[in-house]
Design a protein around this nucleic acid. Sequence first.
DNA 1: CGCGGGATTGACGGATCTCAATACTGGTGG
DNA 2: CCACCAGTATTGAGATCCGTCAATCCCGCG
Lengths: 233, 233
Amino acid sequence: MEPKILQKLRRFAYLSRDDMNDVEQLLHHRRHIGARTDAVALGKISRDTIIILGGWAARYGLVKDGRRQITSFLLPGDHSRLDNPEQAIAAINHLDVAFVRADDLAALERDRPQVGVALARARLAEEARLCALATSLGRLDAEDRIGRTLCDLWHRADAIGLIRDGSLHFPLTQPDLADYTGLTAVHVNRMMRRLRVDGLAELKGHSLVIHDYAELAARVEYRCTDTGDTARS
Amino acid sequence: MEPKILQKLRRFAYLSRDDMNDVEQLLHHRRHIGARTDAVALGKISRDTIIILGGWAARYGLVKDGRRQITSFLLPGDHSRLDNPEQAIAAINHLDVAFVRADDLAALERDRPQVGVALARARLAEEARLCALATSLGRLDAEDRIGRTLCDLWHRADAIGLIRDGSLHFPLTQPDLADYTGLTAVHVNRMMRRLRVDGLAELKGHSLVIHDYAELAARVEYRCTDTGDTARS
DNA sequence: CGCGGGATTGACGGATCTCAATACTGGTGG
DNA sequence: CCACCAGTATTGAGATCCGTCAATCCCGCG
């Protein structure tokens, strides 16, 4: 199947067959990471970029007591630069990744302008998501933080075709969601129950169902950030 | 006097006289913004970059009830892209800025590689700061958030020569600090009192004094993020 | 079959918010 | 020059959201 990275980039800019081939050429330095282990350790600095081919990952930092703050969930097709030593990347479930040298990526962006445009837009969406996370953590209550997180993940998963029959295979645990929303696992559970009894969203086993996305999004005032329509330029 | 933008960029990479001249050439589209008004309104998208020449600014987003979350303080020499419609930029005090076209900036980075390196490092530090903010908001208590914010601003102000006689002219109000740290102005005040009675930091009038930076940084486990030494490449 | 992590729920405590009152400060207009 | 005023700083008392602790249940896995 077409790698998710291509499916994602094509939502941001038109790619020719040559563009796509050159992107795929970059992905030969692959690695498999076991579930619940670090793909990139804390303290590492590198100019490389990690690209998620399959599975979910989380970029996170630690503070005293070992408390963890996830700053970004990485889904298939997502990528992240590895130049921040305070941030590590952990596999949520079994993970397939590629590591790309900064020079190779820069060369590709130079030689394939449309790929450069797509990557720039992906980075823009990622930065907007980080601003939105800070705003949520600082100024929203627990229900809104959880609701927005679910909407965001649902929307991103939908964009890469991960939603089947109105259901999403969802490898995150409630402790994971707690580390992203700045809450405790106990309180995440309470909020999930509230959404469940209100018929908005349900998490059973490892699958997520949002019964009425529009209603949930309206209730928590979620607005999606990415500008992703197959671009025109 | 040398613009702060040059003083800042030279901490990230060596710039020749020609490099510096070309940077200054970009700054002719200047504007003055009155205190407590928006330099860039919410909802605006642009591919331009704003560069702070003098004064302090805040990038922020709003949520319901008009609650505000500041995602970044911009000091003289700092810059920010304007491509996120959910984020506005407000002048804290009287502000002098320059707006630079994306194309002009891209051309400069291409023609002046050292300027490109410096700008990339500045952006890297900015993104690291955003991750650190999210981590603070999600996982640290009020005292640590305030303490780290003061250390960060102190360190950045020092880097551009804003600290005189161990004191920093500090235009932020306690409501501003509250909007950055995700607290209320009342609680910011309580934390500032605690730091004051412990002899660590003091905010009187519009000036900040950190009596023992090392001790404050240790107490709140602040680690500065930027890689700024005058670079060697 | 036992074990460990996750999910779920209740009771209690605490950090932070809200409301409220007072003092201070810089700027404005008479 | 002074009175005024809005925004800010400061402090206290009570309310609330969320965390902590603890128990139970469930499930996948060795």
